[in-house]
Simulated scan of single mutants.
Amino acid sequence: MKVTSIISVLALGATTLASPKPIGNKHLPTTVIAGVEVVDTQIVRDAHALIKKFPDFLYWHSMRTWLLGAATINANKTLKAEVDLEAHALGTILHDLGWDMSENSPWVSKDRRFEVDGAIGAVNFIKAHKSYKPCTWTENRLERIFDGIALHGTFGIHPYKNIDTKWITSSVGFDGVNFTPTEVPIEKFDSIVAEFPKETFQKGAIDTFTWMCATKPNGTYNTFVEPFGTAYVPGYNATGKHSFDRITAGYTREQ
């Protein structure tokens, strides 16, 4: 075999490793929750058990995020075969670990954006799980989950990422306040919301964002959370914290 042929084969092998396919979706155990078929591995069950300890509004939001995304993926056979369904489950179930307002939360930092807290927390949860194996939970696979969570509060980037990151973040977007996502089959949307109600979500989200601004303001400046501090937290002041402020400091525009 020529040297160039050997190099080509090695390059092809490296490309295959760098672009992992779903880890045996067709062989994963499943269950049905709120009328939606979902992955039912032990690590997914344990992630579910973890968020069930959170206040109802947060638990229900996390579950809706997972199920709304899963229902949409299930409706497209090609998509269902391509998305890493276990990674999607963990990325959506654990995406808001950074919302944990309990005292001495193991997931919440004093200064990071809540999305980054959630991303770090999800990866740490996976690595600490008894089923964790580096050959299964590769760095590439973990990075897809990390990015899917870390980018869910930043608009305009995730549509151009890999399919797993994109679908974790898109699924979070399906559970916004005051709207019904057109992508989700309506009968599935209704069954999910019936089991995991949305009535307390708006207040819960506003209270959480306000708490973030009050307790870790440096993690909220220049983000969509900032206006909650301006509106609801006495003494909160983002003046000088914006990129615009830093870039234009000392500049006088010519008329």
Rank of each mutant, 00 (worst) to 15 (best):
97 L>I: 07
165 T>E: 09
141 R>D: 11
153 G>L: 09
140 N>Y: 04
109 S>E: 12
35 G>E: 13
236 Y>C: 01
76 N>M: 10
60 W>A: 13
195 E>D: 15
130 K>G: 06
254 E>Y: 11
147 D>K: 11
88 H>I: 08
31 T>N: 06
22 P>V: 09
3 V>L: 03
213 C>K: 03
234 P>E: 11
187 E>M: 01
205 A>C: 12
187 E>K: 01
150 A>M: 11
43 I>A: 03
143 E>S: 09
97 L>S: 06
98 G>P: 03
202 Q>F: 02
104 N>H: 14
145 I>T: 06
103 E>K: 15
146 F>D: 11
225 V>C: 05
1 M>F: 02
190 D>P: 00
211 W>M: 06
46 D>W: 02
156 G>F: 02
246 R>P: 04
17 L>H: 10
195 E>G: 15
241 K>E: 15
231 A>E: 14
51 I>E: 09
92 T>A: 06
168 I>P: 01
64 R>M: 08
95 H>K: 05
208 T>Y: 01
235 G>H: 02
104 N>Q: 13
126 I>T: 01
25 N>S: 06
5 S>T: 02
24 G>L: 07
124 N>T: 09
102 S>C: 10
57 F>H: 13
28 L>E: 13
155 F>K: 15
253 R>P: 11
217 P>D: 07
40 D>G: 01
83 V>E: 11
43 I>M: 09
239 T>N: 12
205 A>S: 14
190 D>Y: 04
230 T>G: 06
202 Q>T: 13
13 G>P: 00
234 P>L: 03
21 K>A: 14
171 S>C: 12
157 I>G: 09
23 I>C: 12
132 Y>H: 05
158 H>C: 08
193 V>E: 05
60 W>L: 03
8 S>R: 00
120 I>Y: 00
156 G>N: 11
130 K>S: 12
107 W>Q: 08
247 I>E: 13
148 G>I: 04
252 T>E: 14
74 N>M: 10
133 K>T: 05
77 K>Q: 15
115 E>P: 03
52 K>M: 15
52 K>R: 15
106 P>R: 02
241 K>D: 11
251 Y>N: 01
54 F>Q: 15
231 A>V: 05
119 A>D: 09
68 L>C: 15
148 G>R: 04
7 I>W: 00
123 V>P: 01
69 G>I: 11
141 R>T: 07
204 G>Y: 02
196 F>R: 03
179 F>E: 13
58 L>K: 12
104 N>I: 08
16 T>N: 12
232 Y>A: 04
212 M>A: 07
124 N>Q: 14
40 D>C: 06
159 P>G: 12
115 E>V: 09
38 V>P: 09
163 I>G: 04
118 G>T: 10
199 E>H: 06
70 A>F: 12
140 N>A: 04
199 E>V: 05
16 T>W: 11
62 S>I: 08
93 I>K: 03
245 D>K: 00
157 I>H: 10
11 A>H: 00
42 Q>R: 10
97 L>M: 12
18 A>E: 09
